[in-house]
Design a protein around this nucleic acid. Structure first.
Lengths: 231, 231
DNA sequence: GATTACATTTCGTGA
DNA sequence: TCACGAAGTGTAATC
């Protein structure tokens, strides 16, 4: 890992063209050759970057660039595609290299898979008398998140999202269309379950006879393991 | 902008829970208080981070942590939500602070808006005799990228994407459904135009009578300004 | 401010 | 390897 703080201008050409005017920025060169150009704000996303695999070549500026104050030019070329990042460095304020070693990696918990798991356990959140058929119910166009039957024994297909967007309703609609062709299952009702459901998604779902259920992740997690709530 | 290289372990709690075991990493603290934890590989995405607005508090470790080798603890708390990042630092290998100033920002070219602009200018790419009606043609469910009429005067609705995915076909389908209810416009045909069209999207589009057109951005740009092609 | 659509999305997972 | 779906998505434009 090499970190360089320098005044520089940056040009990217590849999937699009982008240009960064002269300013002071932090350049990161990772062990795999990837390069990140960060400013002192914004988000975790760099202003410009090059993903691995790629190669950095340092060269002297041409006459014009040198006259304009450029002292060195980094050309970061993707070894897969045509993407190229050209960093024209004027002044270097800091330059250090460190051996970080390989990172042991991240442990995550709490995403959509967990919501699905919890809803499968607490299937009566869909209404009294519901029974779980199975999670990841396979169909020709992909697995339905949860398949259940209601108190009356009718099939219920559930699509789970963290953020309930219009796309999720479209996805569930495709499943329902397919499932309702199966005489063993039909009629299949749809339930759109999410931590948060966008207004447009709710309108579209309702219009298509799909029920919307808002999931309270913390409450569900609390029911699942009351210990985690008592602190 | 402060950069710190240190051996540390990291815990995030918020929208999910995540833990990073002890290892040497680069910590970035930006002027707005946001914090990024980078390893020496992966992508431009940090292993962990905290988006602004947030506050960093440095404290001494408790007895247990101290005995385990922790020398200082950074608690990064989101000032908006409940998200929290706790960085337990063992050894600091490097610590430097720089004044980068405000970045003048990025200039981009070549995104969907530009594709739309170019296709509007070169509307005959849809076929001889096509005429542009207007860009961003308004409908109740959002604007259609381009509305045109073919040589016979029939309406053509065009959805433009950089990458033609199944979602884009669904979107265009919704527009067509709506537009075809308008007797002044109907019948409206659909054209799905993208730099790259995924096989499944093409199948779905074709099945629905939507024509697929692959756009060559470089060729279109070249036509728009021949100067840029002559080098 | 809320909502929507885009992104050099990146990143995982399963076929 | 490819394709699809999720993301602690972020971000800009639009309402």
């Amino acid at each position: 890992m090499r970190t360089v703080v320098a005044t520089c201008s940056v040009d990217y050409t590849g999937r699009l063209d982008a240009h960064l005017p002269l300013a002071t920025r932090l350049l990161m060169v990772k062990a795999d050759g990837s390069v990140l150009v960060h400013s002192d704000g914004g988000s975790y996303k760099p202003l410009n970057w090059m993903s691995p695999p790629c190669k950095v070549a340092v060269s002297a500026p041409d006459a014009d660039a040198g006259a304009a104050g450029v002292t060195q030019v980094w050309t970061v070329q993707s070894t897969k595609g045509d993407d190229r990042l050209v960093i024209s460095i004027h002044e270097v304020l800091h330059d250090a290299t460190f051996d970080l070693g390989v990172d042991p990696g991240l442990v995550k918990d709490g995403v959509e898979a967990h919501l699905q798991e919890l809803l499968a356990e607490q299937i009566d959140l869909l209404g009294p008398g519901h029974r779980l058929v199975r999670r990841e119910f396979p169909t020709a166009i992909g697995p339905v998140d949860i398949m259940a039957r209601d108190a009356g024994g009718a099939s219920v297909a559930v699509e789970i999202k963290r953020r309930g967007d219009i796309d999720g309703v479209e996805q569930l609609t495709r499943y329902l269309e397919l499932l309702n062709r199966d005489p063993l299952l039909a009629p299949v009702r749809g339930v759109f379950a999410a931590q948060e459901i966008k207004p447009q998604a709710r309108v579209l779902a309702t219009d298509r006879g799909i029920r919307c259920v808002v999931l309270d992740y913390n409450a569900m997690r609390g029911l699942d393991d009351p210990g985690t709530r008592l602190f």
